[in-house]
């Protein structure tokens, strides 16, 4: 009975809106994180080696594709440089303030995944960057493919990442994502929850007249000031009339893969730092 009361008390404590972890939590998390980091990477290397052998046949085709992509990228890069310069000139002419200029200047910090939780309702990951490396709560985490999640807890040398597959409208502490469509920036929707059974994200509150169609790429819009803008989330799979018939909902297929993660990028937004200081 006493244990039960204690259990409820601890859960209540952890549910409350805490800004920071307590000292023992930080210490324990960091020391275990260090031990885990000794194992995760070697295991990944060995597993990767066997996967490489298996993939040997497809490597040639992949190489061809990558060459094509690289050519396309080089072409786009020229275009991008030109547009960036032009954009800079326009900003100068329009007298942008320092803050406005720095707003979309993101830094990508590379981090190693150290361990993955074995609880299916709570698939958190531990990464090997912490507050000593400038990581703060609520920074977005991505891979090369797309958005993974948010930094949910920060310790001095490690931090915990809450994946977007834990998104839930009804949960007391989850951050909804304001999303838009690549190339159709006036589209708008809110990624509100993740359906474990179908493996898809639900995008709600889409306007009736919205031009989004199936196979469009969904990206973060940067509205709402939690997620930075322009991070790929996934592709629209289907779109249907929502619960009340006034708005549409769409199901979104995730772009990032969540298993066998090694390197992830933590997106550092200049703006958050300014606000904190």
């Amino acid at each position: 009975m006493f244990g039960f009361i204690l259990f409820i008390a601890v859960i209540g404590f952890s549910l409350s809106d805490r800004k920071e972890l307590t000292m023992p939590e930080k210490f324990l998390g960091d020391s275990v994180g260090f031990a885990q980091s000794l194992f995760y990477k070697p295991a990944g290397i060995i597993a990767g080696f066997f996967e490489d052998i298996r993939n040997l046949r497809t490597i040639h085709e992949e190489n061809e594709q990558l060459k094509l992509l690289a050519a396309a990228y080089a072409r786009d890069k020229i275009n991008y440089n030109f547009i960036e310069q032009e954009n800079k000139r326009f900003k100068e002419e329009l007298d942008f303030t320092e803050r406005q200029e720095q707003l979309y200047n993101y830094k990508y910090r590379i981090a190693q995944v150290v361990a993955v939780n074995n609880d299916t309702s709570n698939r958190t990951m531990v990464i090997n960057l912490g507050s000593k490396n400038g990581i703060k709560k609520n920074m977005a985490v991505t891979t090369v493919d797309g958005l993974i999640g948010l930094v949910s807890e920060v310790r001095p040398f490690t931090s915990t990442v809450m994946p977007i597959t834990e998104l839930d409208e009804k949960s007391p502490n989850s951050n909804l994502i304001a999303a838009t469509i690549l190339g159709k920036l006036d589209s708008f929707g809110i990624i509100s929850s993740y359906n474990q059974e179908t493996d898809r994200l639900m995008m709600t509150k889409i306007d009736e007249k919205d031009k989004m169609i199936v196979d469009d790429v969904v990206i973060t819009s940067g509205l709402g000031n939690v997620y930075p803008r322009g991070l790929v989330i996934g592709t629209v799979e289907n779109k249907q009339v929502g619960d009340f018939g006034l708005t549409y909902t769409a199901s979104v297929k995730l772009a990032a893969k969540f298993d066998h993660l090694t390197e992830v990028f933590v997106v550092e937004v200049q703006d958050i730092e300014d606000a904190a200081e």
């Binding site: 244990g3 039960f4 259990f7 601890v10 859960i11 404590f13 952890s14 549910l15 972890l21 023992p24 939590e25 324990l28 998390g29 275990v32 994180g33 885990q36 361990a115 939780n117 074995n118 609880d119 309702s121 709570n122 958190t124 531990v126 949910s152 807890e153 915990t160 809450m162 834990e166 949960s171 502490n173």
Partner: peptide
Amino acid sequence: MLQDVVFFGHLMGVHAFVMGL
């Protein structure tokens, strides 16, 4: 508790309670 602390996501103490019990 070790698992709850290291992988803290939503609730703390769930595994400690259930595994102990």
